[in-house]
């Protein structure tokens, strides 16, 4: 059982709201494989990783939006993105991330 999911359960038990971000697909040399997860709490605290730290900030931001509106989101990051200068993968890979609320 993953530390991320255990933490999600603990946060929910404390009455917090939680979102989960999961690497769905990777292309090229991505830092973390599909299935890697971050769990994000409503105050921005998080555990886990979906990249080597390159895109976590943007993923956490999306997770907070998902906590607010309970809508799923999909994110894609890669060096070919227009926003590569601020958020992207230095390794040259590409990843797709699925962000979802964890229902209470």
């Amino acid at each position: 059982m993953s530390e991320e999911l255990r933490t999600a359960a603990a946060w929910l038990a404390e009455g917090r709201k939680v979102a989960l971000a999961t690497v769905i697909q990777t292309w090229g040399s991505a830092p973390r494989p599909a299935g890697s997860q971050i769990v994000v709490r409503d105050d921005g605290a998080f555990l886990g990783s979906v990249s080597g730290g390159c895109v976590e900030g943007a993923v956490i931001e999306a997770a907070l939006s998902t906590i607010a509106d309970t809508k799923n989101r999909e994110l894609e990051f890669g060096v070919t993105d227009a926003e590569a200068w601020n958020v992207g993968l230095a390794c040259g890979g590409r990843i797709r991330i699925f962000v979802e609320p964890v229902e209470e």
């Binding site: 059982m1 993953s2 999911l5 255990r6 999600a8 359960a9 929910l12 989960l20 769905i24 799923n72 999909e74 699925f98 979802e100 609320p101 964890v102 229902e103 209470e104």
Partner: peptide
């Protein structure tokens, strides 16, 4: 992720479990 799924996945188990997700 549904709460029931989370609860099942965080229960101790010696067997693998898979969450299948149809994002569409």
């Amino acid at each position: 992720m549904k709460r029931a799924t989370l609860d099942a996945l965080t229960r101790e188990s010696a067997a693998p479990r898979i969450r299948a997700l149809d994002r569409a």
